[in-house]
């Protein structure tokens, strides 16, 4: 007997909120990116859990979705971190509160 579906969902919600808190509350752009990755991962966990406990596990939809999501997360991380590095080179900071040039 494994843990019920609700426990997986609660765990995923918890992870999502941890990532959310970090993405909103922290100032370093890199930490914001880590937070976003955590949120993505929490969503992936939901997909896998619903696939496993759902009525049609033979359809593999959840698994496929997560595979694509992982690939896209990799692309996102690469571009995001490249942006952080480029910004740092330009402005010597990665702190979100100092990157306010666009503010009127």
């Amino acid at each position: 007997m494994s843990a019920p579906l609700t426990h997986y969902l609660i765990l995923s919600a918890l992870l999502f909120c941890i990532g959310f808190a970090g993405a909103v509350g922290r100032r370093s752009a890199i930490l914001v990116l880590i937070g976003i990755e955590l949120m993505l991962n929490a969503a992936n966990l939901n997909f896998i859990a619903f696939w496993r406990y759902g009525p049609h596990p033979e359809a593999l939809t959840g698994v496929m979705f997560v595979l694509f999501s992982i690939a896209i997360a990799a692309a996102e991380a690469a571009v995001g971190l490249a942006l952080v590095i480029a910004t740092y080179r330009q402005r010597r900071t990665t702190r979100m509160d100092q990157l306010d040039t666009l503010k009127g």
């Binding site: 941890i18 959310f20 909103v24 509350g25 922290r26 100032r27």
Partner: peptide, 10 residues
């Protein structure tokens, strides 16, 4: 901002 983030997350 940290507490605001945590509050929103909660």
């Amino acid at each position: 901002s940290w507490w605001m983030g945590a509050g929103a997350a909660a």
